[in-house]
Write a protein that binds this DNA or RNA. Structure first.
Length: 479
RNA sequence: GUGGUUGUAGCUCAGCUGGUUAGAGCGCCGGAUUGUGGUUCCGGAGGUCGCCGGUUCGAAACCGGUCUUCCACCCCA
């Protein structure tokens, strides 16, 4: 009995029309990346564990696909002495009578064996591998270095809407300059690409880590900033009272929450929010610097103008990736239930961990798969993206086939995609095949046409049909 | 990681409180139509009812486990 085939969860197959639509997205993004002066690079699908581990926080480490060691790399496992095994099994609470191990213990085992022994991991994003790339190739690059990169990344997450375990990121980054010009450029890039893809209603949210640092300074609680922003983010959902309750539950004192109070008023227009935050951060140098940077970027963007994007300051934008130090971006498509479709930010010292100091960088990422889902839901894909075969020749038999193959050679030389049905079966069947494939034209060359040296060309969409010479067909189809 | 949800033909799904041979639509194959598709009509093929175990005279249906799907939280693209 044949087994039913399947693919790992969180992964997908792509049919030809889906690939066509995806390529349309990739091509649109690439075209703009090039226009803004970015050059493509590629890096391997997997990296050394030491390169990636610890760069995304604890959560990231957990979500990384580890490559199980093989051969000699496995030797440490075998070298474990009986006493170490004994200690481990005691620690893990293995019941030798039932041989049962709890799920928690298994997770621990995974940690011990896989996390420590895996020397290679699938890449989790494109930014950290890029930092590694810059450090390794610094002598071959001129700075500021601008690169774009479109490759898949993997996360051992639990799939749900808009969340896959294998997906594409389309990144553009600049390293070697702290100029705010690039922040502005990236906002324009978001606007241009998403507008070109047909999106009309989307919001670019912007924040600055220095503002968040300023808030921690004012509150004198630098380690709590994430908790605070996560709660603040819920104001629209659960209201001020709900947020206060949640903060109390998280163990914050009433006096502390009182100090937070002015932040609950961060609502309304960006202009108003900026005013509130400026007052709040009056005594924090770093905070005010963040506000200054933000203001400058917003002003520059306003001067240049945006097509469709709304630019909005959002303090609750923290983004888990802990290497961001300046601007933080996130893009949401409005009117669709979907997480952020793009993200990005500035990192002052990403290459620092790899031994290269003072290389400020800033970058963005387009989530191609989520953009695909959004365009699909909003019906924004152009009709003609899945460019199929131009001409299919109907097969009438050996003699006709030879003539058709010559025609096909000429058509192809003129960049017109064409082929002949492989066997002289019933015309009806061949027509149906052409129809199913969405072929644009079919060509009929039977005994009669062969004698007269002509081709009967039928437009499959209109149903119109006319007799033409090969040259006429070529001019007809290339104009 | 936490909570919930789903699994019956290639696809979308029916299948009443357990009862004999498991259904529909779409798709597929053949014919009506020997040089004309997307419409119509006729006929046909296709299912260990996710998997393992249990309850029962009897299980697609009930129970347990497991995998899978989708969703929310968390996190993020």
């Amino acid at each position: 009995m044949a087994q039913k085939p399947s693919i790992p969860k969180g992964t997908r197959d792509f049919l030809p029309d889906e690939v066509a639509k995806r390529n349309y997205i990739f091509d649109t993004i690439k075209a703009s990346f090039r226009k803004y002066g970015f050059e493509p690079i590629e890096t391997p699908s997997f990296e050394l564990t030491s390169t990636l581990l610890g760069k995304y926080g604890e959560e990231g480490d957990q979500l990384m696909f580890k490559i199980f060691p093989r051969g000699n790399k496995l030797r440490p496992l075998l070298n474990a002495t009986e006493t170490t095994i004994d200690i481990i099994s005691k620690e893990l609470n293995i019941d030798y009578n039932t041989n049962k191990i709890s799920d928690k213990a298994l997770d621990k085992l995974t940690n011990v064996f896989v996390n420590r022994m895996a020397e290679e991991v699938l890449r989790y994003d494109l930014t950290v591998p890029f930092a590694r790339f810059v450090v390794q190739h610094q002598n071959d690059l001129s700075f500021p270095f601008k690169r774009y990169q479109i490759q898949p990344v993997w996360r051992a997450d639990r799939p749900q809407k808009g969340r896959y375990r294998e997906f594409y990121q389309c990144d553009a980054d600049v390293v070697g300059s702290d100029s705010l010009i690039y922040e502005v450029d990236f906002i324009l890039l978001f606007d241009e690409v998403l507008s070109n893809l047909g999106l009309k209603d989307f919001t670019i949210k912007i924040n600055n880590r220095k503002i968040l640092a300023g808030i921690s300074e004012v509150l004198n609680a630098s380690d709590k900033i994430i908790d605070i922003t996560v709660s603040l983010d819920k104001i629209d959902k659960i209201g001020v009272v709900g947020v206060k309750n949640e903060l109390t539950k998280s163990g914050f004192s009433d006096s502390f929450i009182k100090k937070l109070e002015p932040l609950f008023d961060l609502r309304g227009s960006t202009k108003r929010k900026l005013k509130v935050i400026t007052e709040y951060l009056a005594n924090s140098n770093i905070g005010l610097e963040g506000v200054k940077e933000l203001l400058k970027v917003i002003k520059m963007v306003q001067n240049l103008g945006l097509k469709n994007a709304k630019l909005e300051f959002d303090v609750t934008l923290a983004r888990g990736l802990n290497y961001y130090t300046g601007a933080i971006f996130e893009v949401k498509a409005n009117g669709v239930k979907m997480g952020s479709i793009c993200g990005g930010g500035r990192y002052d010292d990403l290459t620092g961990v790899f031994g290269m100091k003072d290389m400020s960088g800033v970058g963005i990422s387009f989530g191609a798969d989520r953009i695909y889902d959004v365009l699909n839901e909003l019906n924004l894909f152009p009709k003609n993206v899945d460019a199929s075969l131009d001409v299919l020749f109907i097969n009438f038999g050996e003699k006709e086939q030879d003539a058709c193959l010559k025609f096909i050679k000429d058509l192809r030389a003129n960049n017109i995609s064409s082929e002949i049905y492989p066997s002289p079966v019933k015309v009806q069947k061949q027509m149906k095949y052409a129809n199913d494939r969405g072929v644009k034209y079919i060509a009929l060359v039977g005994e009669q046409e062969l004698e007269q040296g002509v081709i009967e060309l039928k437009n499959m969409q209109s149903g119109e049909q006319q007799t033409m010479s090969l040259e006429e067909i070529i001019t007809h189809l290339t104009h």
